[in-house]
Amino acid sequence: MTSLDLKNVGKSFGGLQAIRDVSFTMASGEITGLIGPNGAGKSTLVNLITGLLKLSSGTITLDGQDIGTAPPEAVVRLGVARTFQNIRLLTDGTVLENVMIGYHRRETASILSGLLALPSSRAETAQLQDAAMEMLGRFEIGHLAHATAGALSYGHQRRVEMARAFATDPQILLLDEPVAGMNEAESESLGHLFRKLADSGVGILLIEHDVKFVSKLCHQVHVLDSGRIIASGTPDYVLKHPDVVAAYLGTDEFEGVA
């Protein structure tokens, strides 16, 4: 059982306080939702957790181990993987190559064996190729293994990115708007996939706009607005919370104008 704990996390860019005093905990085997309007700081928070941005204040710990100051490659080695809001694949590579690089932290062949194509390096490449094919199967995109990643449809690219993140064998997976721009059927099938992943023991942080989608999948939802958590709890609870309604639909003054 792994848990990711954020305590009083803050981030400022110059004078702009993008994240202030955010605290929450998420555990493996659960899907935790993080929702909030545009510009609330959701992606900034993901960048802080994965080490792409440096914390201004607070702590982030994984099972008690401080990862707040660790660089991205160290964070993923400890078991925290992510996808990007604006899908970032290696567009020139094939789908298989994209997923194979996800297994990088499993690689043990020495540099020398790689330079000389020694058996250990070749065996590793073959083994990772098989593992990647199996992973593609789990995400139902095995038939696309040899297609160029950049040429795929949006929905397939999302799946490739998730398969790649999942290849790092994470305990915690941060999905930044995974169903953005997808139709209902597509997001439904991804929802089933997330459920399966969570049941296999992975902790998923689902960052979304789509309130309906989140409330179907998550027991625990945090709502971020202007860099602060304004409500936490079950989907039913937070969606009725007056601050959340105000953040999403506007305040009374706005209604007064309408």
Binding site: L52, E73, V76, L90, D92, I101, G102, R105, T168
Partner: peptide, 15 residues
């Protein structure tokens, strides 16, 4: 190949 195409992604995958 990963670093050349997207350094941030490579780092986030542990490279």
């Amino acid at each position: 190949d990963a670093i050349r195409q997207d350094e941030t992604v490579a780092a986030c995958l542990g490279v």
